[in-house]
Design a protein around this nucleic acid. Structure first.
Lengths: 203, 203
DNA sequence: GTCTATAGAAGGATAGAC
DNA sequence: GTCTATCCTTCTATAGAC
């Protein structure tokens, strides 16, 4: 693959990412992607064959990018409390820089089970959770979280961080009827979410 | 409007609801809606003029249906704790019966600000929150929730209930790699979410 | 009010020249 | 590798008969 190939393929991929994030799979138009990339429609098909394949490439990249951001939760060398604080600070900062990701992923995830399967192909959920539990056994016992409650806890943490962005359109509209600004609400949330979760699991 | 009018218009509306919930605005096809309703395409336009108007009617109905389910939060005559327990029990039961609603609303809400504006036209957010705060002032003071933290608390409660359904496709795929079943996870959540939130705000 | 038929536009995809 | 031109299908929407 020459340097020029790479440039064009990347230009297409970046343009597609932008358009798909905005319009979703069904709403996106190949012509629109071509315009954004500054090339013509035929080239899209030359590189990616079909719209579905182009979308799949973009989706896998974005969904992986989102999932990867949960990795710090499984890292070692932090107390559970520090880990939770660190997670919300970093994750909400990330979403603030990429506010369209949650709605995009949540939407497309419910449309095509095959794509989700592919996404999780190499993820060993059981052992990740086992590892996490072993790592914090003492603390989780002290709190009141049993191993079989980990899915509830994990999805609650994800929900606290992701939901405000997934529901951005609604929350913005609601907040616009008050004196509160969405970005202030989000800044505040880094701290609030951490306190909330830590308190929730503390007896 | 005759009885027959009503019947046809309702058949169309119901069919449209079903198809839009599945495919979203962009993915839905008028032909598909007509087939579901057992009539022809031309009749759709006779009753609703355009696809956008038909979609808007469906969206407003569904979004209102979802928002209304938060009403018990503002009802009187329950302690804050009982209110939270009652809310999660009822709300998660409702979402179990209507699992496609969250993803649909969250998706379309980020596409068209005008629709959201229309949806909230007659909602007085400030006074609802003021009312809620006054109602539970003593309890909220005892916990550590100030009035300006209400948006954080409210969105957290919504997140705890709605997120598992909005992310259903992903959570199902993850749980399928363990011995846990999605419906069991959801049943468990009614209790877990209530305990979680109550503990979170308890000093 | 309901149908058939079709206009008219737009979309994804390909052929073929360079 | 990139372009123009175009095919073919599909979609929304309307015209017009009953």
């Amino acid at each position: 693959m020459t340097d020029n190939d790479k440039q064009t393929e990347e230009k297409i991929f970046d343009a597609a990412t932008d358009v798909f994030l905005d319009k979703g799979m069904d709403g996106a138009r190949m012509q629109d992607i071509a315009n954004h990339a500054g090339i013509n429609k035929a080239l899209l098909h030359y590189y990616y064959r079909t719209k579905d394949q182009l979308f799949d490439a973009v989706f896998q990249m974005i969904a992986k990018k989102m999932l990867k951001k949960f990795a710090p939760v499984f890292d070692e060398n932090l107390t559970l409390e520090d880990k939770i604080r660190f997670f919300f600070r970093e994750h909400i900062t990330f979403l603030l820089e990429n506010p369209r990701l949650p709605a995009f992923v949540l939407n497309e995830i419910n449309r095509n089970p095959e794509r989700v399967k592919k996404l999780l192909k190499n993820v060993d959920v059981e052992s990740l959770w086992k590892k996490l539990y072993e790592q914090h056994k003492t603390e989780l016992d002290k709190y009141n979280v049993s191993e079989k409650m980990l899915p509830q806890l994990m999805t609650s943490i994800a929900a606290m961080s992701v939901f405000p962005f997934a529901a951005k359109g609604l929350i913005e509209a609601i907040l616009s009827k008050t004196s509160i600004n969405f970005n202030d609400y989000i800044e505040e949330r880094k701290q609030f979410a951490a306190d909330f979760v830590i308190n929730a699991i503390t007896k």
